[in-house]
Design a protein around this nucleic acid. Structure first.
Length: 352
DNA sequence: AAGGCGGGGGC
DNA sequence: GCCCCAGCCTT
């Protein structure tokens, strides 16, 4: 296989089949020198970290409408950004997003650095995102390696070694294919291929522009690659949240979670820790006529959670959290677990 | 080097 | 149910 032939086939395919995405410059415009707005590229790439295109689109449009440029975002209130991010997951991304925007304004005159190293030094920008922005927004021949690229390279070159150990080898292979000309289009071509044809399961090898070059295809093992070391099974944990309602105005007691860790910086309801391996009863944050509203099930990255929801009508002033009346409280600003608990509690509070 | 960190969609 | 996803950060 000649690497240049693979690159040529990829770009030819991309010129015809490139997906139209809100943060992307189409290939015909790209070839005339037009480049994507670095802010849009950065915002989309951070949202796309471990997240599918379909899940990102609406969030991207809302962020762009509310904060059209990096200076607008840098000036935003933390709580507003976290609320706009609610539901997208991996909330450290939102905290780093804001920190990055403020660093770009404070330290770089409001313009993103154009080199991989400069980008890599910013909060929330790692090896992948730095390379992607450098290639797509600034035309640098950076080697862009994400899960799609790993999969395409493993199959194309028949790499049987398992991830994550095989990552350096796959990166070296990706480097061989990266062109000096149109590196951004090339990176996006590989990722489009991985998302639409060279998919994790049931790859559509019959319509793949690289089928003539693909070693895994020739050996009939495309669907088996890349190999991965088995992951540990998720344990199931138990916990409790207490949702207090003030009868006079229907306000709910909400508190902001600690800035780091699980659901860090996001609003939620007072709760136990979620370490228990069994559904043991937990102590409420203060005395009230607590009654069970039911259970919520949710799966995080590394454990399943069964969360008991208890509710009570509470009139006094609590020593933690804050009562937020319906006119102020926005349930869509909650992370999904807390939104599930809120929905369950709302049923329990209905007049019977 | 390993583990923490969301949520949704596909199968 | 399990797997994956345009990964990053901390320890």
């Amino acid at each position: 296989m000649r690497d240049a032939d693979v690159t040529r086939a990829l770009l030819d395919w991309y010129d015809i089949h490139a997906r139209s995405l809100p943060w992307r410059v189409p290939p015909d415009a790209s070839q005339t020198g037009q480049r994507a707005d670095p802010y849009r590229v950065w915002l989309s790439e951070v949202m796309l970290q471990q997240t599918t295109v379909a899940a990102v689109k609406d969030y991207f449009h809302r962020f762009m409408a509310r904060w059209p440029g990096v200076a607008d975002l840098a000036a935003a209130a933390d709580a507003d950004v976290m609320a706009e991010w609610a539901g997208l997951g991996y909330y450290a991304r939102a905290r780093n997003l804001l920190a990055c925007a403020r660093a770009v304004v404070a330290d770089h005159g409001g313009r993103f650095p154009e080199t991989e190293a400069g980008l890599r030094a910013l909060p929330g920008i790692g090896a992948y995102t730095a390379a992607a922005i450098a290639a797509i927004a600034f035309g640098r021949a950076a080697v862009v390696v994400d899960g799609n690229v790993e999969r395409v390279m493993a199959r194309l070159h028949g790499v049987r070694a398992p991830l994550p150990g095989a990552k350096p080898e796959l990166t070296a292979l990706a480097a061989r294919h990266t062109p000096q000309d149109r590196p951004g289009d090339h990176a996006q071509a590989v990722m489009d291929l991985g998302a639409t044809i060279c998919t994790p399961r049931n790859p559509a090898c019959g319509i793949c522009p690289l089928q003539a070059f693909c070693m895994a295809r020739a050996e009939g093992i495309a669907a088996e690659l890349p190999a991965k070391v088995p992951k540990a099974a998720k344990p199931t944990r138990h916990g409790t949240v207490w949702i207090a309602r003030r009868p006079v105005d229907g306000a709910l007691l909400v508190e902001r979670r600690p800035p780091r860790g699980l659901l860090g910086g996001m609003p939620g309801f007072p709760g136990s820790n979620w370490e228990s391996r069994s559904p043991a009863p937990a102590s409420p944050p203060f005395a009230a006529d607590w009654r069970p509203a039911g259970e919520v099930r949710h799966t995080f990255t590394h454990f399943h959670l069964i969360l008991s929801v208890e509710v009570a009508e509470v009139s006094g002033n609590p020593d933690r959290g804050e009562f937020l009346p319906p006119s102020v409280f926005d349930p869509t600003a909650l992370p999904t677990l807390m939104r599930k608990a809120h929905d369950l509690a709302s049923q329990a509070f209905l007049p019977r």
